[in-house]
Design a protein around this nucleic acid. Structure first.
Lengths: 347, 347
DNA sequence: TTCTATTGGGACAAAAAACGTCCAGCTAGA
DNA sequence: TCTAGCTGGACGTTTTTTGTCCCAATAGAA
């Protein structure tokens, strides 16, 4: 923050919030366009009246256009969005928080997006877009990419948009069906990534909850074995981080599993591994899929998770996460993580 | 104006006015401190409520302090004032206008201060302060300074504040008593300048409206002659510009004089000379005092006049003003001058 | 083509904020 | 000691903002 805007804020303290709010609205319109007043008010977490007031202003400023199909951002609007990007980040203190989190979580990079995806659904799209941009930059040097499932991963796939298709890209489903919603399964996500980028994908289909013998047998199957080899060659891993209990429920885990997860004090989940508050592995779903050791061998790992509700899980997972991990998260999660660590320090 | 603030203004159009308003209030407090709510509202041209709202905010921001004696600017406030100075000027388009006026009036420099002194009394103080600063810079190289009378000149004297007294400075009253209010006579002003700077002053006392013979006789008197010689050695001239008719009335001019002034189409007045709209001399008060030729010989001339009502007079005087003149004026006058010249061009 | 979901704009009462305008009590300086 | 000028509090009135409908138009699906 330069001296000028510092002085500006002294003289106009209301400016800060106002600017952030309008910027966020403009950005959301940009991502969801064409979008109407009502839909926007839901997705941006504001009342219809407020959205209306602000969009009327944005239109007067010729930053957006209103057609019968909905509101769209003009070229001028895009320009403003671009010019103020860094400024809004600085002003919200996001740059500062990124540095702090980087130190606390002991990883190479942290990217924080404004607001809280728990409160404002559109923030998920922002996270997806940012992760997509980061991932696209990796495509140049890395071609073998393992992906997990989850709604966050789905958000990334929606935002991928590569300039020219790259047939060399290979997306590998990091896990088999884990009882999740089909749309959010790793297999589906891998396919989506491939479709968006022009690459190919490899899926892993294995029924859940196999007996030990059946599992051992399957592992000898060539189709499955091939996947295991691919995991060894993985350059990049893209994954979400879940809340342990939430994931257990979503996966319709057996009572036995749930008991293990609960008694072990699991907090977070990633690639089918459950971690406690100190990052120790409490339980792992016995199924084929990428192994933690294989993840650690990857040159870059992209962890994506946002929302205040994910704060504990993120903190837990990163106790023992690989150094070359890049975390993409949001302000809600970031603030809570900082709050939690501060509390711990005080004790 | 850089791209960032440009984008900021696109997103927050109300910012511009708000910032200007608060800046002006803060600046006025700075100049008139300690000052109370009511006095400030009068001098700044705003309602008491509005002033109260803004000053409450400024206090919360710790830019001003409120004591029983009145409001004062804190060191933080001063800092803000300093940091935003250039920015507010740019934003109001004053820098642009200065360049335009410089070309139109064909002089070396123009300084425009925000707002209109006709509407807001405090602006006169701003003009005075700015002129004082410019004048002080000249003191280093120039020691013989001729000054005229008028309320604007009085405002300058109030704002003079030199770091260390300079006994070498000599202030010369450019004219004798011209029937004006004693406080605003050139003699009084010269004395005030001298007092503030530690210099000396020379006054010229001559009754108004002398007969031709008496006048000739007086000019031979040593005291008077000495003044005439001083005018020849003058380095710097500081003067105001008046509206012709207004000045004639204020000086209780004779009917004969008024007739000459009116029939000649006089618009402006300076050093006792009356000029028509083309800058031609229409009439001059026959009295001792600095001659136009002597003014033209000075190395720097500081002309000070503000307020929309002075626009025509300024335009008139500068038709034939010396090149090395620096004009200090306000936004009100500047805008009107630009408006008038635009109208003329269209015809 | 028709139907349906969604759009921007209009409208309006209720709630909230801003405003104009006093007064009381205090304090610094004449 | 007195007075002018200051701040802070108060309050009815006006203005603005807010929440919440409805409506005609339209785009896109069927």
């Amino acid at each position: 923050m330069d001296a000028l805007s510092d002085a500006q804020q002294k003289l106009m303290p209301e400016m800060s919030e106002l600017l952030k709010k309008r910027y966020q609205i403009l950005q959301t319109i940009n991502l969801e366009q064409p979008i109407g007043r009502r839909t926007l008010s839901e997705v941006a977490g504001a009342t219809e009246r407020e959205i209306r007031k602000e969009t009327d202003l944005l239109r007067n400023q010729q930053l957006i256009e209103m057609k019968t199909a909905g509101m769209t951002v003009t070229s001028q609007g895009l320009e403003v969005l671009e010019k103020l990007k860094v400024f809004v980040r600085e002003m919200s203190g996001l740059t500062d928080m990124e540095k702090q989190l980087q130190t606390i979580l002991k990883i190479s990079k942290v990217v924080i997006l404004p607001q809280d995806s728990d409160e404002i659904p559109a923030v998920k799209t922002h996270i997806g877009k940012e992760a997509a941009r980061l991932l696209e930059a990796l495509f140049i040097r890395h071609k073998k990419i393992a992906v997990t499932g989850g709604s966050t991963m789905a958000a990334i796939s929606k935002e991928l948009s590569i300039s020219k298709p790259d047939r060399a890209l290979q997306f590998i489903a990091a896990r088999g069906g884990l009882g999740e919603d089909v749309l959010h399964q790793a297999n589906t996500i891998a396919a989506a990534f491939a479709e968006k980028t022009g690459g190919s994908f490899k899926t892993l289909y294995l029924p859940d909850h196999l007996s030990a013998e059946a599992f051992a047998m399957m592992m000898k199957e060539p189709v499955i074995k091939e996947m295991m080899d691919l995991y060894d060659q993985t350059d990049v891993v893209v994954h979400g981080i879940g809340n342990a209990e939430e994931m257990a429920v979503r996966r319709h885990s057996s009572l036995e599993e749930v008991e293990k997860i609960r008694s072990g004090g699991a907090v977070s989940e990633a690639f089918g591994y459950y971690f406690d508050k100190d990052g120790k592995i409490v339980y792992r779903i016995r199924t084929a899929g990428i192994q933690l050791e294989q993840v650690q061998k990857a040159s870059t790992i992209l962890a994506v998770a946002g929302g205040g509700s994910k704060a504990r899980a993120i903190l837990s997972y990163f106790k023992n996460a690989p150094k070359p991990t890049v975390l993409v998260t949001d302000e809600g999660a970031a603030r809570k993580i900082l709050g939690l660590t501060k509390k711990l320090e005080e004790l």
